[in-house]
């Protein structure tokens, strides 16, 4: 039982970080029909911004991390939208999907070539200590990660639901034409979405990288997990991405112990295929009907 609780908590902790990536992915989809296949690399690369700033430039870590968030917002948010998404939007979805696949490859290769092909140790924000509750041993970073990730998502929900800008963003996502008629600057709202995605990716990166090492290939699994979480939860709901992320985190952690270490990676994929078969709109999603 104590093992189960331990696995559950570390699963929820990892899952809440997956949810950050999945929420960003969902937001981009809603606001601009961008399916970002580079999302995994977007979560991989901010860790290297931190390393570059702290190890190569010698900045203290408390300065390197906020700078990384700003850098990610500018590069992965604003630059991504201006250079890649905007000029391609008129061509439709497929060229953009291909371009994001190529972008993911480009980011990965650049990190491998210009930083290092080897896994790099990454500083943890929290002390590596454990709490003992009953029989269960719970690590402090797990709890801290969970609190920060959930806090970020709750803050985002409040921003989207309670502020004027947030509600304008939602209106833009739901019906851009009507939003524009009602005086919403939709281009600006879409840009905000990209900036938020950049910030979410940076936070997810800083939280998740200490668990593994910082490595150029981290994005492959992270991206896949983010897609699966978004689809399992429901493509058109932030809550859905959250539930999907937590579910995938828990399943992933449990399967290594209770199912098979060799096929650990396979279980989320099987879940994805099952969900698409029986409930294509996702667990919490509302059916959009056929868009064609």
């Amino acid at each position: 039982m104590s093992e189960f609780i331990q696995l559950l908590i570390s699963g929820l902790s990892a899952g809440s970080i997956y949810a950050l990536a999945a929420v960003g992915f969902t937001l981009l989809w809603q606001a601009s029909q961008t399916i970002n296949f580079a999302q995994g690399e977007f979560v991989m690369v901010p860790a290297f911004f931190v390393l570059a700033l702290s190890v190569k430039l010698g900045l203290p870590i408390w300065l390197a991390m906020p700078l990384t968030v700003i850098l990610s917002v500018l590069l992965l948010g604003a630059l991504f939208k201006k250079l890649i998404v905007e000029p391609m939007h008129k061509h439709g979805t497929i060229p953009l999907v291909i371009a994001t696949i190529a972008l993911g490859l480009l980011i990965k290769e650049m990190v491998k070539e210009f930083y290092s092909p080897l896994g790099q140790p990454f500083p943890s924000l929290f002390p590596q200590t454990v709490l003992t509750v009953g029989d269960a041993v719970i690590s402090v970073p797990d709890i801290a990660n969970f609190v920060i990730a959930m806090g970020t998502i709750v803050a985002l929900q409040l921003f989207l639901g309670r502020t004027r800008t947030g509600r304008s963003m939602q209106a833009t996502a739901q019906n851009p034409d009507v939003a524009q008629i009602l005086g919403v600057d939709i281009q600006r709202m879409v840009m905000y979405t990209f900036l938020i995605n950049g910030a979410l990716a940076a936070i997810a990166s800083i939280l998740i990288t200490p668990i593994y090492l910082a490595k150029f290939s981290n994005g492959e699994t992270l991206g896949l997990v983010a897609f699966i979480a978004a689809i399992v939860g429901g493509f058109n709901q932030i809550r859905g991405a959250l539930v999907g992320g937590l579910l995938i985190g828990v399943i992933d952690n449990m399967s290594a112990t209770y199912f098979s270490a060799e096929y650990r990676q396979a279980l989320p994929m099987i879940l994805l295929i099952v969900i698409i078969l029986v409930r294509p709109q996702g667990l919490l999603g509302t059916s959009e009907g056929r868009t064609v």
Binding site: L224, I228, Q265, P268, P280, T291
Partner: peptide, 15 residues
């Protein structure tokens, strides 16, 4: 379903 679900399913399938 519409959208590009085939892309995701095939991505998972490849793995």
């Amino acid at each position: 379903v519409q959208h590009h679900f085939l892309a995701f399913v095939t991505l998972a399938f490849n793995t």
